[in-house]
Design a protein around this nucleic acid. Structure first.
Lengths: 116, 116
DNA sequence: TATTCTGGTTACCAGTAAGTAACCACTAAT
DNA sequence: ATTAGTGGTTACTTACTGGTAACCAGAATA
């Protein structure tokens, strides 16, 4: 799921894209934002994600130091996630993307439409 | 290649991630940057990308209004690409990602290493 | 005559991401 | 006795992404 070619690149920008340049990670980081949140909440809030994929993405985000995981040895189990300093520092980038999208979003120009 | 679920989401942020949230597009935008560049140059500069994938990504970026394509009817053909205003406005975001990565990049924490 | 140059397209195939469904532990409530 | 609740894991299957190699035009060059 993580692209090894990208993560082992000698270009730092390419490595960065290798860790956060996929569709789920920015969404997950954005949903967690500044709060502490449980696995089940993430699963309920994020549309179309499956538990399996959510588990995988959370694990990678933890490995990359973007979020922290707190597992409480209770029954039923409780696991909470929150962004690390690194993850929190990524939030302004997501805000910039929102502003950029808001300013420039357009309906895709499809060749068929244009040529009619 | 473009994720339809994401692009048709009613969440603008999700739609944005649907258009630029993959591994090649940020790389391509970063390589083009402020210059005008030919297809062959992109193919030569970007490591590991194939012509097929490059073609697809460039087409989608054009449809999304992020770059402009200029095809000259010469032989051999010449096709040039440059970022649109929307694409240029995305460059500062890429710079933020570089800074973020530079400040926080770490070696992934793998469970095996930790538990030994 | 054959090769090179350019920016693709196409068909086919391999690898991987993602979806589905079942299962686990243990307690509390019905 | 059964179900719900929680946060996963696992095996299996499907869908899709991405890779490979061949091919195209048409002029210029060797």
């Amino acid at each position: 799921m993580r692209d090894e070619k990208f993560c082992n690149s000698n270009c730092p920008f390419t490595r960065a894209i290798g860790t956060i340049g996929n569709k789920w990670k920015p969404i997950i980081i954005n949903v967690i934002s500044t709060r502490t949140i449980r696995f089940g909440q993430l699963d309920a809030i994020i549309p179309h994600i499956t538990r399996k994929v959510l588990t995988e993405q959370l694990k990678e985000l933890e490995e990359d130091g973007i979020l922290e995981r707190f597992a409480y040895k209770e029954l039923p189990p409780r696991v909470e996630y929150k962004l690390s300093e690194k993850g929190l520092a990524f939030l302004p980038i997501l805000e910039s993307i929102k502003e950029w999208n808001h300013k420039y979003e357009t309906v895709p120009i499809l060749k068929e439409e244009v040529s009619v």
